[in-house]
């Protein structure tokens, strides 16, 4: 009786193993797809930023096309990111959600205060959006590490 139940469990394990291989493969594909979209977005960002100066001497049409390509590929990257996130298991989704909430909050609070510093003449230079992007990225990475350690 016990052997029969073990056999059934092993059969179920074998069946789920096939399903999980598909899950693992799908996750790997999602990760690769996201990496490719991110690389493409970086390339189009570089083209949109440096193309006008280096490649086509600020000609309007290629500049606009460069920016449109950058935005279009950016939306593609967002879609790949969403699919990647949806493919992850529920614990990783929870860790990601907490990290994103923390990064977004930090970006909003510190970003607005940072912008205010110039208006109230505490700093003399103009706040750059790139500083905010770096802050959000670093906060997100730190929160991800903290989340992974928390549930380890």
């Amino acid at each position: 009786m016990l052997t029969l139940q073990k056999d059934n469990l092993n059969k179920l394990m074998n069946k789920t193993k096939t399903d999980s291989s598909a899950w693992t493969t799908r996750n790997k594909e999602n990760t690769i797809r996201l990496a490719l979209w991110t690389a493409a977005w970086l390339v189009t960002t570089a083209i949109a930023a440096f193309g006008p100066k280096v490649l086509w001497d600020f000609s309007t049409v290629p500049t606009i096309l460069g920016v449109l390509a950058n935005v279009g590929v950016g939306f593609g990257m967002m879609g790949a990111s969403k699919r990647h996130l949806q493919g992850q298991d529920e614990l990783m989704q929870k860790i990601q959600l907490e990290a994103m909430a923390f990064a977004m909050g930090m970006g909003l609070v510190i970003g607005l205060s940072y912008e205010l510093l110039e208006d109230i003449r505490i700093i003399s230079f103009e706040p750059e959006i790139s500083h905010l992007v770096i802050l959000v990225c670093l906060t997100y990475m730190a929160a991800m590490v903290a989340g992974i350690r928390k549930y380890r």
């Binding site: 179920l12 789920t16 999980s20 529920e90 614990l91 990783m92 549930y151 380890r152």
Partner: peptide, 11 residues
């Protein structure tokens, strides 16, 4: 593998 989650989730 059987539950289609990571080992970290099981832990």
């Amino acid at each position: 593998d059987a539950l289609e989650v990571s080992r970290q989730t099981i832990n």
